[in-house]
Design a binder for these strands. Structure first.
Lengths: 335, 335
DNA sequence: CTGTTAGCGCGTTCAA
DNA sequence: TTGAACGCGCTAACAG
């Protein structure tokens, strides 16, 4: 039984010959302490391996040095990547990161937020798609910093961090144009979703900037799935003349496009170039490895963390900020 | 400013006309309370939307209703899957799950565990490969439950949960045998690692059980990578007669094997069958979709959670348990 | 079956 | 520049 009771602030004070108050202030720096006693206290803190009890501190301060990441599905590889970014920044500062996966319905989210806010998390990164205003309000009302990954900017409801879907897609299309292709098909996902809309906009913008005229018949839509990609690609490849490249709205669609190209006995990239979007793990494992646009999930996580830290130190007085991070084109062998 | 102060236990007591103690015991059930007062208290709890403050409770009890998952790389898709399993079981019980990613060096792990134990986590699921005995001891000494994913069972150091690598590989080999193949190559990863050893054992066992004699020349080793798979597969396919199937020690190796088969102008599965192990996301996206063995990560997570809950309620008196979960063969189109 | 009381370990007034 | 003393909100002896 190694039951050696952990040292408390009182032990430190006694051993250093000062009051509890002084120890507290040495550690928090919230009031001047003479260099001499400060040194002595710090030495004793070392000797006793003293660390303040987070529960006791939380009880007094209402803070917890913890940040929560609320997602709709931990299993989506985007989120762990974000979590890694949060850790990069927050772990060294002594913050704890809790990941909270919530089914996409608002009662679950209500419950999860209650739990988290009861525990006095200092910040919440909200990646749940079904979040409502009342959820935002619950978080900020509880005094926690909020960062969202989508939605409208509102000074009451924290900051927003997101990636530049339009710009990323424009880069992909530009790349394909620079490879000499002009007749470029676009296999979109659901055009009523934000990614569908923004990525299509990127496609159009790149064509315009390159002086290539937009041809409506080269754009097809479907679900963001492999099957959607197969169908969309077949439709475009049946055109006469067939497109020289298929730009896909996500990697799953691109996988399907690859299937379709193969089914027609054509070769990638010789006969037709294919690009994806997202850079899922599989992208580099396909044959040929897929040229795609990498969603900077980790960098998004880091940015969220920094915004939270800023709010924590500057107080809640400032307005809302929106940070848009560039997507990065990854050129592999499918173009 | 919706600053309405949260209701405390005292408010509940006052409104219900009982003592604070009684409220506490109604909620904890740790001593009998008359049905009448119990009902009244519960009603007031509802009305005031009272929830005990976790910090205050933690300060008193030394517990936190939180469990930590310590991993070496959040980004490895196995861990989020495990985390989801933990959530499945722990979230409904009101537990918070913290994921903690630690670089594979022991000082980082020391620091992370200190933080977690300071916060009085009730349990730790330790998936870090470099954990030492002193880390196990730190956890159990702090009174937290420990579950590990590998290593030797030791009554002092909590329970172990893992998947049956040997059985899973035996299933894969048996499946290939049942398809009529007899000359089966095995592309292993590093045979000095636990997976390398256990999976090779599964290969040998399946052959033996099927009455096929083991042929050493059909086994090659290399790294657990795509490149390793390319090289190993080429070596085996150069044999005369060539193997009818390539069983690979993980999916990355299988991707490489697929490359090699293609490079030789052969077709999968017509000329040669290929299997993987792990069932990474990419497995189903390859062409052909890969037959592989699914690591029951989520079920592992659930099991860890259950073991922790059991220890929490039964006290630390019991001995250590080891739970081995079956791997599941996923038959796709590469066989 | 119920209430009174004493801390848990810290941060923070207030006083010196 | 320093201390003494109070209380954050709760649980667990210890009475009754």
């Amino acid at each position: 039984m190694s039951k050696e009771n952990r040292a408390g602030i009182a032990d430190v004070a006694a051993r250093a010959g000062v009051s509890i108050t002084t120890v507290s202030h040495v550690l928090s720096g919230r009031r001047p302490v003479s260099d001499k006693t400060k040194a002595k206290v710090l030495r004793v803190v070392q000797e006793l391996d003293y660390r303040p009890d987070p529960s006791a501190r939380g009880l007094r301060t209402g803070r917890s040095e913890a940040v929560a990441l609320v997602v709709s599905d931990v299993t989506n590889p985007f989120y762990p990547q974000m979590a890694a970014g949060l850790q990069d920044v927050l772990q060294p500062q002594g913050f704890l990161i809790s990941i909270c996966s919530v089914r996409e319905n608002s009662e679950d989210l209500d419950a999860a937020l209650r739990h988290l806010l009861d525990r006095k998390v200092d910040g919440v990164v909200l990646a749940s798609l079904t979040a409502q205003e009342r959820h935002y309000a619950a978080i900020t009302d509880a005094g926690a910093s909020l960062v969202r990954l989508s939605g409208e900017l509102d000074p009451r409801f924290g900051d927003i961090v997101r990636a530049d879907d339009t710009g990323g897609m424009a880069d992909a299309v530009t790349h394909v144009l620079e490879r000499g292709n002009r007749r470029i098909g676009f296999v979109n996902g659901d055009p009523d979703t934000a990614p569908g809309r923004l990525r299509l906009a990127g496609y159009e913008r790149a064509l315009r900037d390159f002086g290539v005229e937009f041809d409506e018949s080269l754009v097809v839509s479907g679900p963001f799935t492999r099957a959607g990609g197969v169908e969309g690609a077949h439709a475009l490849l049946a055109l006469d003349p067939a497109p020289e490249a298929l730009v896909c709205a996500n990697d799953l669609i691109a996988v399907g496009a690859l299937d379709a190209v193969r089914e027609r006995g054509l070769s990638v990239p010789r006969d037709v170039a294919v690009t994806g979007f997202d850079d899922i793990e599989a992208a580099s494992l396909l044959s040929p490895p897929l040229t795609t646009v990498h969603n900077p999930a980790r960098e998004i996580g880091r940015t969220c963390a920094r915004l939270i830290l800023e709010r924590l130190s500057e107080g809640p007085a400032q307005g809302a900020r929106e940070v848009v991070l560039p997507q990065k084109l990854i050129v592999r062998e499918s173009t």
